[in-house]
């Protein structure tokens, strides 16, 4: 068995500033050993440890789709030691990638079903992966209606804007973009918080409709009752969580919520399951 702590060596192939305030950058990594790309076979919703020798490791959701070959993509907010260092790295620099880690959005079980994807802020990364995957022609036909609700603080903070504009033109996805507020007269989408937009734009819940959520705690807290009101059953709502992590493989002991480890038993949990788990912070 391979040493699960050993990162695959990768080269930074592309870096793009992702938001107007420049606090987020999107990195594309290419494996130094092509056979490692196959070993790094992942599902939508999984994460990986970005491993920078000399700095440390950070767990980040995978933003590329398994259908995109030749690279793996992550969008990273600059916040601590490792992310600050990463933001200063250049194309061509060598670092490591460890994973894929955790469970995933169980979309293979949702064939023929309607899916509504709800995201906010920079938690949109694994949701971007999911949407990209679902929109591949060979995948799109296997699913029913696809709705997306995505909110950011202001238009400049929206991730993957070019892609969203393209998706918006399609007739096989209902895309609802929203911002908390803006004075941009050209803003032609929604204004308001994600829970509010969800209430008016999301389809009614039923046996065949599932919701996938990822976002900051406040957004999740206020979106849950909205989905409940819309008739979504708790086992039809998938949420992706995060916690401080080190090992990413269920061994170092810090990311637990009750007996569940966010890194290994999660990061994706049904609301049903979450209701059985203690609410930390109390």
């Amino acid at each position: 068995m391979q040493n699960p702590y050993k990162a695959y060596p990768v080269r930074i192939d592309d870096i793009q500033v992702a938001t107007a305030d420049k606090t987020l950058r999107t990195f594309k990594f290419v494996f130094l050993n092509p056979e490692d790309e196959e070993k790094f076979s992942y599902h939508v919703g999984q994460f990986a440890e970005l491993s920078i020798p000399g700095q440390g490791e950070i767990p980040i959701g995978i933003a590329s789709s398994p259908s995109e070959k030749g690279f793996v993509m992550f969008t990273v907010f600059r916040t601590g030691k490792v992310t600050s260092h990463l933001h200063n790295m250049k194309v061509g620099d060598i670092m490591g990638l460890r994973g894929p880690l955790g469970n995933w959005y169980p979309i293979e079980n949702l064939e023929g079903k309607n899916i509504v994807i709800i995201g906010a802020g920079f938690a949109f990364t694994t949701l971007r992966s999911t949407i990209k995957y679902l929109l591949e022609p060979e995948n799109r036909k296997r699913y029913g209606r696809l709705d997306v609700i995505y909110g950011a603080r202001n238009p400049g903070m929206i991730l993957y804007k070019d892609e969203l504009v393209e998706w918006e033109k399609r007739d096989d996805i209902n895309l609802n973009l929203t911002v908390d507020g803006t004075d941009d007269p050209d803003w032609k989408y929604h204004t308001g918080f994600v829970p509010t937009i969800t209430e008016t734009q999301a389809p009614q819940g039923d046996d065949d409709t599932y919701a996938i959520l990822c976002g900051p705690p406040m957004m999740l807290k206020f979106t849950k009752p909205v989905l409940d009101k819309l008739g979504y059953q708790a086992d039809h709502i998938f949420m992706s969580l995060e916690n401080r992590m080190k090992c990413g493989i269920g061994m170092c002991g810090r990311c637990n919520i009750g007996k569940e480890l966010v890194c290994k038993d999660g990061p994706v949990f049904t609301l049903d399951k979450l209701n059985e788990m203690p609410e930390e912070d109390q």
């Binding site: 020798p53 440390g56 002991g253 810090r254």
Partner: peptide, 21 residues
């Protein structure tokens, strides 16, 4: 058994350590 992982550098050489936490 809980542990932490930390990189320790000296000049241009370094070691990724695991420490009890």
């Amino acid at each position: 058994w809980c542990f932490d992982i930390q990189d320790e550098n000296k000049g241009t050489e370094g070691v990724r350590m695991r420490n009890w936490d």
